[in-house]
């Protein structure tokens, strides 16, 4: 994290009635793209609503862009674009009118809001649909216009709540590309709340993982995805069925288990390197076509963090 956090929360707790949602939550988020990751019901949306000033925390404090949360919600919202998870659009309005209206609510003068609405609608890929009523839009188009209305006033921070929900694979890729592009400009930071690990991994550099209202792990994704020296993934080819190769590896003390994409995941015995593999392969008449040290995916990191918490 950078020394100048855009979001800082400390000991934040919140409950809906008697149901606790956030429990002594503390973390910092720096500039750039940060994923807010957690299973459904983890408290991600509630956290965003507290940061926006919609809800008041029972305990704890926090600040967004240096502005304390709580009573100064309006000042925070002036600098934030929020893309809600649920459908919240006015269906009878034309797309360009809706985005311009949102721009005016941010304080843009009418003419500039209208010009800006055209720009951001082109940017999110709705240029051809600017004059269509929002009610006629598909789910993917609605997600795009929600992003457009959040971007219209050039916020310092974008809160995206499940932005890839309901999108088909190509729509999802396009949305992730848009988010990466916004961040790449360097003016806007993104908080990407999602339960889809691959999306967060694709669009963000940092992550805060939440489960049951607690932070289970946070940091740079690259740092969290550690390389495991003792585990390698192997693809091999043999004239026969190759069972002899796997059995020979087991006799050498290696633990073999099927991995992803037809790879064999081999855990090397302590003190031994990959030379064991090549020796056994040569003896078994097997060609090794691919060998790579295993790197934890974000999913692995998440699952192990949750296991540790449990």
């Amino acid at each position: 994290m950078t020394s100048d956090p855009i979001i800082q929360v400390s000991g934040l707790s919140f409950a809906y009635g008697k149901t606790p949602v956030l429990n002594d939550l503390s973390f910092q988020i720096g500039r750039g793209a940060t994923g807010l990751l957690g299973p459904n019901g983890a408290g991600k949306t509630t956290l965003l609503k507290i940061l926006l000033g919609f809800l008041r925390p029972a305990r704890g404090s926090g600040a967004v862009l240096g502005i304390p949360i709580g009573r100064r919600g309006v000042h925070i919202r002036q600098r934030i674009g929020y893309m809600p998870e649920h459908d919240c659009l006015i269906p009878s309005l034309k797309a360009v009118r809706l985005v311009a209206y949102c721009g005016e609510l941010y304080g843009l003068p009418w003419a500039e809001a209208m010009q800006r609405a055209h720009e951001v609608l082109f940017y999110v890929g709705l240029g051809e649909a600017r004059y269509r009523e929002v009610g006629t839009f598909s789910t993917g188009m609605k997600q795009r216009i929600k992003l457009a209305q959040a971007l219209v006033a050039s916020p310092d921070v974008l809160f995206l709540d499940e932005p890839t929900n309901g999108l088909d694979p190509s729509g999802r890729q396009e949305m992730l590309q848009l988010i990466k592009d916004v961040v790449a400009q360097g003016e806007t930071s993104v908080i990407f709340s999602s339960h889809i690990l691959h999306d967060v991994e694709a669009a963000c550099t940092d992550v805060v993982m939440i489960k049951k209202g607690r932070v289970v792990v946070s940091g740079k994704i690259e740092d969290l995805k550690r390389v495991e020296e003792a585990v390698v993934e192997v693809r091999w080819k043999s004239a026969g069925d190759g069972d002899g190769f796997v059995q020979a590896l087991a006799r050498e003390g290696c633990r073999c288990e099927p991995g992803r994409n037809d790879l064999l995941r081999v855990t090397l015995p302590p003190g031994k390197g990959t030379e064991v593999l090549f020796r056994v392969a040569r003896a078994s008449g097997v060609q090794i076509r691919h060998l790579m040290r295993k790197r934890d995916s974000l999913e692995d990191v998440f699952l192990s963090a949750i296991e540790e918490q449990n």
Binding site: V74, Q78, Y101, E104, L105, Y106, G107, L108, P109, E112, R116, E119, F122, Y123, V124, G125, L126, G127, E128, A129, L151, V152, A153, S154, E174, Q177, L178, D181, V182, Q185, E187, T188
Partner: peptide, 25 residues
């Protein structure tokens, strides 16, 4: 439909004061 035709350009203007935003509604 293209993903986007242009890059993201931040708006550099100054927002109008808050007191009359209700009039927008």
């Amino acid at each position: 439909m293209p993903v986007y035709d242009q890059h993201y350009h931040p708006w550099a203007g100054k927002p109008r004061p808050r007191w009359h935003r209700w009039l927008v509604i």
